[in-house]
Write a protein that binds this DNA or RNA. Structure first.
Length: 262
DNA sequence: ATGACTAAGTATCTTAGA
């Protein structure tokens, strides 16, 4: 049965519940993975999503920060949640669909301002988080799986507005890109967005600080949708919904989507 | 110059985002 999956860093699921509902109405993905819910699980407005047919939810949450949720029209059962790097943060949750596909929803640490773990503890935590993800995938190679989320790294030169100007900016430093690539390789993950849209600039995040984010267009592709090789051939129709960044009181991230014919 | 915003908490500023 074919299905569509979406991922979106919502930057507060309670404040932006109306935007989530609008996306669900307009795009009708079968599954929507959210990051930065910034809410305890019991305070997520799940009834509003259930009213639109999203009757299944798997989530991990905490007060104020982080938090991930999987909303689904399709039945989905819990398939674990990891606390990589031992941060005690709600940054991962996994679910399994009835067709046997496992969905991983990740929110990788942002990493702070200075790309040096000797002076910035958060940068070290980001690298450690990616290393632990890598080791987990090496230990148990994923099959029939999809990995989505805000990975907080824009790996390619075409994934940022200026490769040269961002080389020393957290999210695009060579050490982060190397950690991401090792983790991707450990799970044999295929970047579905780039499989479908191989060429050209592609962003999923634009800073709130720009006077006119659309005109400046200084974006980065921080949000990713990957799949294992056994199902990557079934993926198609990848999109990044740039126009959603222009909605009233938007998240600074745009939703990323793909469909699978399985 | 990227360039001066946004959200939550216990909150009238601090921490975090990236």
């Amino acid at each position: 049965m074919p299905f569509t999956i979406a991922t979106w860093n919502i930057n507060s699921v309670r404040l932006r519940a109306p935007l989530v509902e609008r996306l669900l109405r307009e795009e009708v993905p079968d599954i929507l993975c959210l990051q930065e819910c910034k809410s305890p699980v019991e305070k997520i407005p799940r009834d509003a999503f259930a009213a639109l047919g999203y009757t299944h939810m798997i989530a991990r949450g905490q007060k104020g920060y982080n938090g991930v949720a999987i909303l689904s029209k399709l039945p989905i059962e819990e398939a674990g949640a990891e606390d990589h790097a031992g941060l005690g943060h709600a940054r991962h949750v996994a679910g399994r669909l009835e067709n046997g596909v496992t969905v991983h929803n990740f929110y990788v640490p942002a990493g702070g301002d200075v790309p040096d773990r000797a002076v910035n503890e958060k940068f070290g935590q980001k690298l450690d988080y990616l290393t632990d993800m890598r080791d987990a995938f090496r230990c148990m190679p994923p099959e029939k799986a999809i990995l989505v989320g805000d990975l907080n790294i824009a790996p390619g030169e075409e994934d940022v507005w200026s490769h040269k100007q961002l080389l020393k900016i957290v999210s695009h430093t060579p050490v982060e890109v190397a950690h991401l690539e090792e983790m991707r390789e450990a799970g044999s993950w295929v970047d579905i967005t780039r499989q479908d849209i191989p060429d050209g600039k592609l962003y999923s995040w634009w800073s709130y600080r720009a006077r006119d984010w659309d005109a400046a267009d200084k974006g980065r592709r921080l949000d990713h949708l990957w799949a294992t090789p056994d199902i990557s051939g079934a993926a198609h129709s990848s999109r990044i919904l740039r126009h959603v960044r222009g909605w009233e009181k938007p998240s600074d991230h745009a939703p990323v989507l793909a469909s699978f014919d399985l």
